[in-house]
């Protein structure tokens, strides 16, 4: 079967002129501060962004933020110092999921998440808190994927805001399957 398909492809292309690869994506022209651009994009699609000057500030905020939740499912790649004091529960029961992004991309407002720490905390809880280091926020998705290419996990995923659908009556509804609330914590 395989060989028959490939043979048909080769014979279909026998007289076809080969089109050269066009090279790099012309991409969006990027200007301005990267973290602000990411923040604007992410907020525009209904996401939340918090920025912290350092770990202490982040931890102070985290204490207040976490107090609204009864339990947490955290990805294995979340640094120990950013752990909440909440009881750990399975992702399917957790009101809050926490993960660590490898990168973020400003032009598309995307978080680049990795399967290494676990996928379900990124998907099942209704609220998803994602940490990202300020120096991991890149200007473009092109750059973020380029940075990731050396170490491609089982899944590299982009999350660019809360889960949404407009399939019912053309009204945008959030939190359809994935998290309806996504909070990004950018730590310098």
């Amino acid at each position: 079967m395989r060989d028959r398909i490939l043979a048909r492809v080769r014979s279909a292309l026998a007289d076809r002129e080969v089109v050269a690869h066009p090279g790099a994506f012309p991409g969006p022209l990027h200007a301005g501060p990267v973290i602000e651009a990411f923040t604007d994009r992410f907020r525009a699609v209904g996401g939340e962004v918090e920025r912290f000057a350092g770990m202490d500030e982040a931890l102070d905020w985290l204490e207040g933020f976490a107090s609204a939740f009864a339990g947490v499912a955290a990805g294995a790649d979340v640094p120990a110092e950013l752990a909440t004091k909440l009881p750990t529960v399975p992702a399917r029961d957790a009101p809050l999921g926490v993960s660590m992004a490898r990168y973020a991309a400003a032009d598309t407002g995307s978080l680049v998440l990795d399967s290494k720490g676990g996928r379900l905390p990124q998907l099942l809880p209704p609220t998803h808190l994602v940490w990202v280091r300020a120096d991991a926020v890149m200007a473009t998705l092109d750059e973020a994927l380029e940075a990731g290419r050396g170490d491609l996990p089982a899944v590299l995923a982009l999350h660019s805001g809360p889960s949404r659908s407009a399939d019912i009556g053309r009204v945008i509804v959030t939190g359809v399957h994935g998290p309806g609330r996504v909070v990004v914590g950018i730590v310098d």
């Binding site: 994009r41 699609v45 032009d107 598309t108 407002g109 995307s110 399967s115 290494k116 998705l141 491609l152 996990p153 089982a154 899944v155 590299l156 995923a157 982009l158 999350h159 660019s160 805001g161 809360p162 889960s163 949404r164 994935g178």
Partner: peptide, 14 residues
Amino acid sequence: AVGTFVSMIHGPRR
């Protein structure tokens, strides 16, 4: 700018 979720899959759980 991009779909809300993109999966870039490289095989089963490692």
